[in-house]
Computed example of a mutant assay.
Amino acid sequence: MSYLTYLLIGHVAMLLHYLFFAYVVFGGFLSWRWPRMFWPHLLVAAYALGIVIIGWPCFLTDIENWSRLNTGREIMENGFIDHHITGVFYPPEHLMTSRYVIAGIVASAYAGLAWKLYRRRSAAVGAVSE
């Protein structure tokens, strides 16, 4: 493979990383429109939590590091978030704060879905009893 092919693969992996990260943070809100999207998002959020808390491997990080090695660049020692997100979107000393904010965003998306489903069921029960 050529240098540009390796570089393209690495850039695509980085782009997919950003999309994955955005989906983890904001994807729960899709379930407000499409409630069945809750389960895929829950699985993705659980996987992301496992990456952060347990240290599960991320195949996108492996692909990006493979690309970096084949293009003569340094690999990402601590993964995508430490390399591309921390220090860019928030200062490094606010890593835990950012994790709490992200958890709050995901929890609020799920709470909003629960409220919406509760209201829908309440309206349906009220319509039946009339």
Rank of each mutant, 00 (worst) to 15 (best):
S2G: 12
S2N: 14
L4D: 15
T5L: 15
Y6L: 06
Y6M: 08
L7N: 12
L7H: 09
L8V: 06
V12K: 03
M14S: 05
L19S: 02
F20T: 12
F20L: 11
F21H: 13
A22D: 03
Y23L: 10
F26M: 02
G27I: 00
G28M: 00
F29A: 09
L30S: 14
L30N: 04
S31D: 04
W34G: 01
M37F: 13
W39S: 10
P40K: 07
H41Q: 14
H41R: 01
L43Q: 01
A45F: 12
A46N: 02
Y47T: 09
Y47M: 09
A48E: 08
L49I: 05
L49W: 11
G50L: 11
G50Y: 01
I53L: 15
I53P: 00
I54Y: 10
P57C: 02
P57G: 00
C58R: 08
F59L: 15
L60I: 04
I63A: 15
E64R: 03
N65I: 04
N65C: 12
N65Y: 05
S67W: 03
R68A: 13
R68L: 14
L69M: 13
N70E: 10
G72I: 06
E74C: 02
E77M: 06
E77N: 06
G79R: 01
F80L: 03
F80D: 00
I81A: 01
D82S: 12
H83F: 03
I85R: 06
G87H: 10
F89E: 02
Y90L: 07
E93C: 03
E93Y: 12
H94M: 15
L95R: 12
M96T: 10
M96W: 10
M96A: 06
S98I: 04
Y100P: 00
V101Q: 08
V101S: 05
I102S: 13
I102H: 02
A103E: 05
A103V: 05
G104P: 08
I105G: 05
I105W: 03
A107I: 08
A111Y: 11
A111D: 06
G112A: 07
A114G: 03
W115T: 07
K116A: 11
K116Q: 15
L117T: 04
L117H: 03
Y118L: 12
Y118E: 10
A123H: 09
A123R: 15
G126C: 01
G126Q: 11
A127E: 14
V128H: 07
